[in-house]
Design a protein around this nucleic acid. Structure first.
Ligand SMILES: [Mn+2]
Ligand SMILES: [Mn+2]
Ligand SMILES: [Mn+2]
Ligand SMILES: [Mn+2]
Lengths: 220, 220
DNA sequence: ATAGACTTTTAGCCGACACTAAAAAATAAT
DNA sequence: ATTATTTTTTAGTGTCGGCTAAAAGTCTAT
């Protein structure tokens, strides 16, 4: 079984996630932005990933991830999310503090380590941001979910995930009192700017911009 | 604060441990053997570590670690040993299975991670091999200890550590029933070859070669 | 259809960390 | 005190993963 370097794992994970979001081919510039490296560096990496057949690479036309590539990406994502659960559940990290550390931990090579960690954590199905944790075969049991701004007025649901996991956004959610698991009801949608008022746990109302609403995912 | 790469951390840890064992200057060949790299690679690394002032390097005359270097080495060792405790205590790894994984985990950069891990493990003072875990200031509370072959006949003590942490040696100890914490009594020392018979926990006798005995450390 | 703008790739460079082969220094043996 | 042996360093190479500058390809607007 061919091996990927840390850098290759990071790129492949980014490519997988970008292609999940956008569906079609992922551009060099997109990857460059996501990875905070220069487009020239991305081109070079794409060549290498292409040679390893984890992506299909047509010069100038973006990339598609292969089935083999998906397996690798999902393995890394599984590791990342299990470590995130560990950091939050066991080491009392806040959900906005886990990204950097998990991004390192995900590269530790040991099948048994991950199996044991999974078991130790009680086989969690979702990470602290509500993202599904692939099983060891790469199967992802994803929940149907909608951004709040697509919920009808008076519609209800439960917050199950966030689309943006940046520390800034997560801390904002903490501040206003939105969290994974919260039951919400859409009270009002302002036509003018798309901003939204929701009721949280039948107790507290929160006003949020359309931008914020679009990054909170709800299961109806 | 200057930063060390993974490779530099590994070399520095090896240099620290070799100099603790042997007391005087550490040779290029020693490091090469320990790190399983070629002497030429070691020379190059020594030059770099010398520039970073974590070692004192006189060409052709081996190296000495500096105070600054000790701090770095002890920090890495602390991380390694805390992770070893985690793997054994929480993830049910055997004591001969932790080396490789801990050798990767020790490089994860996060002060808070290590503090929290330490706390989560209950501030352990020793790792699964009986080696002391430096505190966050680099202080090591080491126990006075002797290899079994230096104990007088009829002398008693408690196994507190092993000098050799190779999987082969540790599995051998498992097989014969020697373990950290066991109470022992030296029953016989064969003059001819230095082999030794000990009584473990007032129950079981074990014969061992001098070589084995020299790698089991006892607190009297 | 062509010019201009934007995107992407190529070419060349650099630092980190391995290696081999050869030179140089230190140490051991005669 | 030479010579031989061993240890260590230097010189040169290669891979990995980043960079900048320049070239080349694609897309857009007139
Ligand atoms: Mn990563
Ligand atoms: Mn997450
Ligand atoms: Mn290591
Ligand atoms: Mn240990």
């Amino acid at each position: 079984m061919m091996q990927l370097t840390h850098a290759e794992e990071n790129y492949l994970k980014a490519i997988y996630q970008l292609s999940e979001a956008g569906k079609k081919g992922v551009s060099t510039n997109d990857i460059s932005a996501e990875m905070k490296t220069k487009p020239a560096s991305v081109s070079d990496m794409l060549r290498k990933l292409g040679e390893k057949e984890v992506i299909e690479y047509r010069k100038y036309y973006g990339v598609h991830i292969t089935e083999e590539g998906k397996k690798f990406a999902l393995r890394t994502i599984r590791k990342q999310r299990l470590w995130e659960v560990f950091l939050v559940e066991k080491l009392r990290f806040a959900w906005d503090e886990v990204a950097e550390v998990a991004d390192e931990l995900e590269h530790v090579q040991s099948t048994i380590l991950i199996q044991r960690l999974d078991e130790y954590l009680g086989f969690p199905k979702f990470d602290p941001h509500g993202d599904p944790i692939p099983d060891e075969y790469g199967d992802v049991r994803s929940r149907p979910r909608l951004p709040i701004n697509e919920i009808d007025i008076n519609g209800t649901g439960q917050i199950v995930a966030v689309k943006d996991s940046s520390a800034a956004f997560l801390r904002y959610l903490d501040k206003v009192g939105a969290y994974i698991g919260a039951r919400i009801k859409v009270l009002e949608k302002v036509e003018f700017d798309g901003s939204i008022e929701i009721l949280v746990d039948n107790k507290k109302t929160i006003f949020m911009s359309k931008d914020v609403a679009a990054n909170i995912l709800v299961m109806v």
